[in-house]
Simulated scan of single mutants.
Amino acid sequence: MTGRPPAPRYVANARMYSPAPGAAAAWKGLFAWLARESGVDLDVVDHAFPLALSDLWARKDLGAAFMCGFPFMLTGDRPRPVAAPIPSGALYGGKPVYATRLAVGANTRFQSLEDTFGGRLGYTASDSHSGYNALRHHLLPYFKRHGAKLYQKSVGPLTTPRRVIEALLAGDIDVGPLDSYALDLMLRHDPALASQIRVVATTDLAPIPFLVAAADCPDEIITRLQATLLTLAAAPACAPLRDRLCLDTFAPVDIAVYDLMLRWDNEARCVGYAQPR
C-alpha cells in the first residue's frame, strides 16, 4: 500500500520589490504567511541581479513572483496572474497603480526635468515599463516639440532601481527613472537616501506589476493564493508586514487595463521615438 504523493511545492520571489534588505526580509515574511493561510507550499528563492527575470517568469514551478505588465503584454507565452499590490500613500489612491519618479542627485544644479536636457539619461531595460516605456512616454511631448535628441547620451540597461540610484550618486547619469513603489520601499528601509536624491518629475499613473504563477499552475492553486492575498488588509497579524512593505493590500488583476502600456509604446514608435534619448 502506497501513501499519497507529496503535495507540489511552488516558488515565490519578490525581487522586483526587494530594493533593500529590510524589504526582502518583509516579503519573505509575507510569503510565509501566504503559504500558511492558503495551504500552498511556497519556497522563497533568490533570483538576484544579474540573473534574468525572464528565466524566473518561465519557471514551471512558479507560484508567486512579481512581473512587470509591459513584458507580460509583449510575451506570447504568458504566466497566470495572481494578484496586484495596492501600495499605501496618496499617490496610489487605493488602487493597484504606480508611476515613475524621475530623480537627480540632491547636490546637482538640476531643479526640473528640463534642466537635465543635454545631459545623460539612465534607463533600466527596454522591456521595463517604469524604467523605459513610462519614461519615454513622459519625454514624448518634449521630443515632439524639439524634434531631436533630448539627451547627449542614454546610459543602460541599468536593470534595477537600486542601480539607477547608484549611477546617479556616482555621477554616471544626470537623471534616471525609479519605480515609485520601489522608491517608497527604499526610503522606508534606507531613510538617509532622501537626502541624496531629488525627484524632479513624476509620470502619469499606470497599472502596477503583479504576482504571477506558471502558465500551467492549477486553477485551485491560483484561487487559494489570490483569495488569501485579498484578505491581507483584514489580517491583524500582517499589520507590521504591511507597514514594512508600504502596502495596503492586494487586488485582482484586470489584464485589460495593461493595454495602456502597449498604447504608450505604439505612440512613441509611431513618431520615431523608439528609445528614450
Rank of each mutant, 00 (worst) to 15 (best):
residue 260 L to V: 05
residue 53 L to E: 14
residue 90 A to L: 11
residue 191 P to Y: 11
residue 175 V to A: 06
residue 67 M to H: 01
residue 202 T to H: 11
residue 224 R to G: 03
residue 213 A to M: 06
residue 57 W to V: 01
residue 87 P to C: 09
residue 24 A to I: 03
residue 198 R to W: 07
residue 22 G to L: 06
residue 116 T to E: 06
residue 121 L to I: 01
residue 232 L to G: 06
residue 70 F to G: 02
residue 248 D to F: 00
residue 187 L to C: 09
residue 23 A to R: 03
residue 8 P to W: 09
residue 206 A to M: 14
residue 57 W to M: 05
residue 241 L to M: 11
residue 80 R to Q: 09
residue 37 E to I: 00
residue 194 A to H: 11
residue 264 W to H: 12
residue 122 G to F: 02
residue 20 A to I: 09
residue 154 S to F: 10
residue 107 N to P: 00
residue 178 L to G: 05
residue 61 D to C: 03
residue 200 V to T: 06
residue 53 L to H: 13
residue 208 I to N: 05
residue 91 L to H: 12
residue 190 D to N: 14
residue 270 C to P: 00
residue 236 P to T: 06
residue 271 V to L: 08
residue 211 L to G: 01
residue 1 M to N: 12
residue 123 Y to F: 14
residue 179 D to A: 15
residue 220 E to P: 00
residue 225 L to S: 01
residue 226 Q to N: 03
residue 169 L to W: 11
residue 120 R to M: 04
residue 112 S to T: 15
residue 52 A to D: 15
residue 107 N to I: 00
residue 62 L to S: 04
residue 136 R to N: 08
residue 50 P to A: 04
residue 82 V to K: 00
residue 11 V to T: 12
residue 69 G to Q: 06
residue 164 V to C: 10
residue 146 H to M: 13
residue 127 D to C: 13
residue 201 A to M: 08
residue 145 R to N: 13
residue 87 P to S: 04
residue 191 P to V: 07
residue 86 I to E: 07
residue 240 P to C: 05
residue 170 A to N: 14
residue 84 A to C: 05
residue 21 P to Y: 07
residue 235 A to R: 12
residue 128 S to R: 09
residue 164 V to F: 04
residue 40 V to G: 02
residue 234 A to P: 07
residue 247 L to Q: 03
residue 264 W to C: 04
residue 203 T to N: 12
residue 101 R to D: 14
residue 37 E to F: 00
residue 3 G to A: 09
residue 265 D to V: 00
residue 39 G to N: 08
residue 130 S to Q: 04
residue 229 L to C: 03
residue 85 P to V: 06
residue 244 R to K: 15
residue 234 A to T: 12
residue 224 R to P: 02
residue 234 A to L: 12
residue 50 P to H: 02
residue 255 I to T: 14
residue 99 A to S: 15
residue 186 M to W: 04
residue 194 A to D: 13
residue 67 M to R: 03
residue 274 A to I: 03
residue 78 R to Q: 10
residue 155 V to Q: 09
residue 28 K to D: 15
residue 127 D to T: 15
residue 11 V to E: 02
residue 238 C to T: 13
residue 40 V to Y: 03
residue 206 A to N: 12
residue 185 L to T: 06
residue 237 A to I: 08
residue 2 T to G: 10
residue 277 R to Q: 11
residue 233 A to W: 08
residue 154 S to W: 05
residue 14 A to K: 05
residue 275 Q to Y: 12
residue 193 L to P: 13
residue 205 L to C: 11
residue 14 A to N: 05
residue 227 A to Y: 01
residue 179 D to Y: 12
residue 37 E to C: 07
residue 129 H to A: 15
residue 126 S to R: 12
residue 146 H to N: 11
residue 171 G to M: 08
residue 134 A to E: 09
residue 4 R to D: 11
residue 261 M to D: 09
residue 147 G to S: 11
residue 275 Q to H: 13
residue 181 Y to N: 07
residue 167 A to E: 06
residue 146 H to A: 15
residue 263 R to A: 09
residue 174 D to Y: 05
residue 58 A to E: 13
residue 244 R to V: 02
residue 129 H to G: 10
residue 274 A to G: 12
